[in-house]
Design a protein around this nucleic acid. Structure first.
Lengths: 184, 184
DNA sequence: CAGTTTAGTAAGTGATTACTCACTTTTAGT
DNA sequence: ACTAAAAGTGAGTAATCACTTACTAAACTG
């Protein structure tokens, strides 16, 4: 990976997240990255190839996060870490994940990177088990609920990323998953 | 509203939801609606004007739904109706709401139709009150949680709209909000 | 029914865009 | 140092797209 190739990737990521894939011309990417437009196509063949390269990075990063959650010993700690996942993702690489989430809705990319890929299925399995260990009556459905929750949380974070809001919301959500509570 | 004007709106809605705003050429809209391309601009001035007309419909429909929730007497019924909201929206006008949700992420339209408009703020207020009446300790935060939940539910519905899935998920979610339960 | 506004069309047009191509420069292996 | 491959450039180019214009047909209105 040469310096300029990486610069193209970073710039494209930033611009795609900001203005969207279709509305960001390759000419602008080249200009802001300070390279010739032709170089983009030398390295990535297509505009779509550029997108794919960005998406590939996403798989890696997400896999890393899931791995660290799976590695936790306590079932409750796993659940709390899952709740914290979107916050971690956004604080790390805001633009990156913004792009990821916006892609879900586009037909072109549905089924490609967002659809249940390996790490997602693994996380679901592990969290199901965690709920089971904690004595929840319907662990599969609890996981689904948790997934919906962190999906919705991601939406909220996008619109209101203030520190105070995040902290309050997280601790409230975590308080919903505690030992010694009613498990229906 | 002439017949052809309505046909343009419907076709544009369908295509925007399916392929996105930027990737749907006005020529295709005209072709599939069976009208000349020029007519689109006669009626809506812009491609954006076409989008705005679609968005205006959204306000109306959503306002109607919120109104029917607000009208309910029992606080628990209000909460359950809110949980059912995304399912109702999708069953009614799937393409329409798909488009709405995808728009949230686009900079251009953020703040226009999706941002806390009247009906949203009213719903939040009413549901906060419902939680208060039911004796929840932190009604404001409960509303936020519920908002995140129905956001996440919308995501799920988009990907898995099977009848069985919807029914199971809904009744599970509703079971989380019941009288005579622990209210932390 | 005359006259005026509104609905509708078909054929452009200029700007933009993704991508190519012929070419030069840099890098790396022997 | 020689050379072949890889990195990089910049000026095209064909296609596409949103929008215009000059025009006709239909619908109101007094």
């Amino acid at each position: 990976m040469t310096e300029k190739k990486e610069l193209i990737l970073e710039t494209a990521l930033k611009l795609f997240a900001e203005h969207g894939f279709d509305t960001t011309p390759t000419s602008q990417i080249a200009k802001e990255a300070g390279v010739s437009e032709g170089l983009i196509f030398r390295h990535f063949t297509n505009k779509e190839g550029l997108m794919d390269a960005i998406l590939a990075m996403s798989e890696e990063r997400m896999a890393r996060h899931v791995k660290s959650i799976v590695a936790l010993a306590e079932p409750l700690a796993k659940i709390h870490a899952t709740i914290e996942l979107p916050v971690k993702l956004f604080s790390e690489e805001r633009e990156f994940w913004k792009l990821q989430f916006s892609l879900k809705w586009q037909k072109k990319y549905r089924g490609q990177s967002y659809r249940p890929s390996g790490y997602y299925l693994e996380l679901v399995e592990v969290i199901t088990d965690a709920f089971r260990q904690l004595g929840y009556a319907q662990p599969e459905k609890e996981v689904l609920l948790l997934v919906m929750l962190i999906d919705g949380l991601s939406n909220q974070l996008m619109q209101q990323p203030s520190e105070a809001f995040i902290e309050q919301t997280l601790s409230f959500l975590k308080s919903k998953y505690q030992q010694n509570k009613l498990k229906s």
